[in-house]
């Protein structure tokens, strides 16, 4: 970490075309050192809370036991990996973030932090997380954690997000890794159950994010990101939200169907997922009007967050009862 000063850097070590990035971030970078809070903000603490929660659920739902110190270390490593990947994401997308109201106040576009500092911080966090997982927990967990960071920072952020409207579908994979890694930290192997937990978050992400994209689509269009509502149109996006919601119902039931969970999870998954579909129906079938308040979309987005927390809580509760 170095002190701020001068214009933000624009050179990057990776030679990947970024035709959509034509502007620079705020050139008002202060001469003062960045606050530690700015580095903390780089880790996307809100997203990290969901990462920590799902990783913890994967760890607690896995068959077997792990010493609390090692369990804490595994969760810490997963959180650090997610934070490092988020910092690398913001380093790469600083120009793009500057164009969107939702992200313009982040440390890099607002000029509170130097780009190279964000890159170094992200690399340090990512490397340290994999190292800790490797020496303290399990090599397979470390390998999957390393791949998840690479997947989010390179495959998603640098490669696919600016190129395909399927970016959210692919990006969902990055957010789906934490419960898988948490599970592996306990068992040391990849079986059907943690893969299903991965699949649940993978399928959950498109309707969750596209519901958001429907009511902030102006921002994404302005930033040149090929978000589904911008490229395929609102109607197609709405149909896909409904389609993924129905698919989510099926996938969320699979852990119970294959006998990996008990009735607590089975009933919870059924009720929660049916409600998800019910809330998706008006979103999927309606057409927005000029000056539309998008209440159905906002309600679905809000519920989707509750859904994931409730589903994974049910998974852990089920495991606790079975144990």
């Amino acid at each position: 970490m170095t002190t701020g000063g001068g214009a933000p850097e624009t050179g990057r070590p990776l030679h990947i075309e970024k035709p959509h990035l034509t502007t620079t971030v705020a050139s008002t970078a202060t001469q003062l050192p960045a606050e530690w809070r700015d580095f903390f903000a780089l880790t996307k603490p809100r997203v990290m809370s969901l990462v920590v929660f799902t990783a913890l659920c994967g760890l607690l739902a896995a068959p077997g036991a792990i010493h609390p110190v090692l369990g804490f270390t595994a969760i810490l490593a997963i959180a650090m990996g997610a934070g490092g990947a988020a910092a690398l994401n913001q380093w790469w997308e600083a120009d793009l973030d500057a164009k969107m109201k939702r992200t313009a106040k982040r440390p890099l576009p607002s000029g509170r932090l130097r780009r190279s500092d964000a890159r170094d911080f992200g690399m340090l966090m990512s490397g340290a997380s994999v190292f800790i997982m490797l020496v303290a927990i399990h090599w397979l967990a470390a390998v999957v954690l390393a791949f998840s960071i690479f997947y989010y920072a390179v495959i998603y952020t640098m490669w696919l997000k600016p190129r395909t409207p399927q970016n959210i579908v692919i990006g969902g994979g990055a957010g789906a890794f934490p419960p898988l890694i948490g599970w592996i930290a306990v068992t040391g192997e990849i079986t059907a159950m943690p893969v299903l937990l991965f699949a649940i978050i993978f399928i959950w992400t498109p309707p969750h994010f596209w519901a958001l994209a429907l009511f902030v689509k102006t921002d994404y269009a302005k930033a040149g990101i090929p978000m589904m509502p911008v490229v395929a149109g609102e109607k197609s996006t709405r149909h896909q939200i409904l389609g993924y919601s129905v698919l989510l119902l099926a996938v969320a039931m699979l852990p119970w169907i294959i006998g990996g969970t008990g009735l607590i999870y089975g009933i919870s998954a059924l009720l929660l997922s049916v409600l998800f579909v019910v809330l998706s129906i008006p979103v999927g079938l309606r057409t927005s009007q000029p000056d539309d308040r998008m209440m159905q979309e906002k309600r679905l987005f809000g519920y989707s967050v509750i859904y994931l927390f409730a589903l994974f809580t049910a998974l852990v509760a089920d495991r606790m009862v079975l144990a």
């Binding site: 970490m1 001469q31 003062l32 960045a34 606050e35 530690w36």
Partner: peptide
């Protein structure tokens, strides 16, 4: 400057 450096 000193305050921020100290905090960090």
């Amino acid at each position: 400057f000193i305050r921020r450096r100290k905090n960090r």
